[in-house]
Amino acid sequence: MTADNQLDVWEVFMQSKPGANYIHAGSIHASDKQMALQNARDTYSRRGEGTSIWVVPSSAIVASNPEDNGMFFDPANDKIYRHPTFYVMPEGAKAI
């Protein structure tokens, strides 16, 4: 495999409208912050997808290790009492 010579990788997060969550849009290459922001804009907001952009160096992201999945996530599977499913849902509440 040849080395990736296309600058550093940055992760791009877009906000579709003010107040909305920033959602991961994808990644881009750039050598500095300004270039990252411009490349993110050019790559992911060409069709009016966003009103705000965050870029984060991919190297700054700490990711969980797939080998730890058992220890990290499985214990949550059988703890049904952690879900608030025993409450009566108020009528009209949708986003719970």
């Binding site: 296309q6 600058l7 881009i28 290459h29 750039a30 490349n39 050019d42 790559t43 060409r46």
Partner: peptide
Amino acid sequence: PFLEEDLALTN
């Protein structure tokens, strides 16, 4: 030179 710039120029 690279994909992102390709998009920038055509934008």
